[in-house]
C-alpha cells in the first residue's frame, strides 16, 4: 500500500502532520472506549461518583431480555446479508448488459443513500403506517392493512429488508458496476461464443472476477448492521414494538440516556466493541490481502 523509496526517514515532520488526527482520536475515540471498559464495572449515572460493583453489570446483562432481544435481532439482520449480496450483484449484472436507462435507474436507487438514515427512517415511518398510501391500497385489495411496524415479527423483518437490502442498493450498484467495469471484455466474448447463458456467465465469470468487491460488500454490510443502524431504528421504530427491533446500539442509548444507567450501558458497549473489533480485523485483513 505504501511505497518507501526515500532513502532516509522524514524525521519528526510526519508526527507534526499526524498531530491533529492523533489528538482528536485520542480524545474522542480511544479515551471513550477505554472509559467504557472501566465504567462497565461500576454503577454510575453518568455524573457524580461511581461505585465499583465488579461483574454485576455483566451478570444482569446476560439475563436481560432486552439484551437477548438485541443479540437475536442483530443475528436476524445478519441473515439478510446474503440476500442483499445476491440481489445487488444480480441487478448490477443486469445493468452491465447495457439495459436502456441504466444510469437513471442507478441514480434513482441511490437516493436513499443520499438522504441518509434519519430521513429514510421518517419517510418509511409514514409510508408503512396503517393510513399510508401503501396500506390504503393494500386495504383496498385485501380488506385489511399489513401491520409492518406493529406486528413484532413483521417489524424486525421489515427493518432487515429495508436496511440491509433496499437502502444500500444504489450504493451497491455503483460499487459493483465499477468493479465489473474492470473485467476484461474478451472473457465475456469468449463465454458468448461458447454459448454460455447469462446465469452461467454471471456465476463463472462475473462473480469470481470481482471476488474482492463482493467480500468488501459483505464486510460493509456487517458494519452497517452492527455499527450504523441507530439512526434508522431511532426514527423508524424506536426499538419497538416491545423490544422487537432493539439492537445493541439502541440498547446502549436507552440505558444511558433515558434510564441513566451509564455503568450498565457500558457493559453493553463492551460487547458491541468486541463484535466491532472482530469485524474491523476482518476488514483490515481484506484490505491487506487486496493490496498485496
Amino acid at each position: 500500500m505504501r511505497r518507501r523509496r526515500g532513502l532516509e526517514g522524514d524525521g519528526a515532520v510526519p508526527y507534526v502532520f499526524l498531530a491533529p488526527l492523533l489528538a482528536l482520536l485520542a480524545a474522542f475515540m480511544i479515551y471513550p472506549v477505554a472509559m467504557n471498559i472501566v465504567t462497565s464495572f461500576t454503577e454510575w449515572k453518568g455524573y457524580g461518583p461511581w461505585k465499583w460493583i465488579g461483574l454485576a453489570n455483566y451478570k444482569t446483562m446476560i439475563g436481560d431480555e432486552q439484551f437477548l432481544a438485541s443479540i437475536l435481532n442483530t443475528g436476524l439482520m445478519v441473515l439478510y446479508i446474503p440476500l442483499s449480496t445476491i440481489v445487488t450483484l444480480l441487478i448490477a449484472a443486469f445493468l452491465r448488459e447495457g439495459i436502456g436507462g441504466w444510469k437513471v435507474y442507478r441514480a434513482i436507487l441511490y437516493i436513499p443513500n443520499l438522504l441518509g438514515y434519519v430521513l429514510m427512517g421518517v419517510i418509511f415511518s409514514i409510508y408503512l403506517r396503517d393510513d399510508s398510501a401503501l396500506n390504503t391500497a393494500i386495504r383496498g385489495i385485501t380488506g385489511s392493512p399489513i401491520h409492518f411496524l406493529i406486528s413484532p415479527v413483521l417489524a424486525i423483518n421489515t427493518v432487515g429488508l429495508l436496511l440491509v437490502v433496499f437502502l444500500h442498493l444504489g450504493f451497491g450498484l455503483i460499487y459493483f458496476l465499477a468493479a465489473m467495469n474492470g473485467i476484461d471484455k474478451s472473457i465475456y466474448e469468449a463465454a458468448l461464443i461458447d454459448g454460455a447463458s447469462f446465469w452461467k456467465t454471471f456465476l463463472r465469470v462475473t462473480v469470481p472476477s470481482i471476488r474482492f468487491a463482493v467480500e468488501f460488500w459483505v464486510v460493509f454490510n456487517f458494519i452497517e448492521v452492527f455499527a450504523r443502524m441507530f439512526s434508522f431504528i431511532h426514527t423508524l421504530t424506536q426499538g419497538g414494538p416491545g423490544y422487537s427491533t432493539f439492537t445493541l446500539e439502541y440498547g446502549i442509548f436507552i440505558q444511558a440516556f433515558s434510564k441513566f444507567k451509564v455503568g450498565y450501558s457500558s457493559a453493553w458497549s463492551v460487547v458491541l466493541f468486541a463484535f466491532c473489533a472482530m469485524i474491523s480485523v476482518a476488514q483490515i485483513r481484506l484490505m491487506q490481502r487486496r493490496d498485496e
Partner: peptide, 26 residues
C-alpha cells in the same frame, strides 16, 4: 513519508474506521 510508527499508527486508524457512534456517545 517514512517514520518508525507509520504502519502501527495506520493500522490503529483503520481499526477505528468502523466504531459505532453509540460506543462513544456517553
Amino acid at each position: 513519508m517514512r517514520f518508525a510508527l507509520n504502519k502501527p499508527l495506520f493500522l490503529l486508524v483503520l481499526f477505528m474506521t468502523i466504531f459505532p457512534q453509540l460506543l462513544l456517545a456517553t
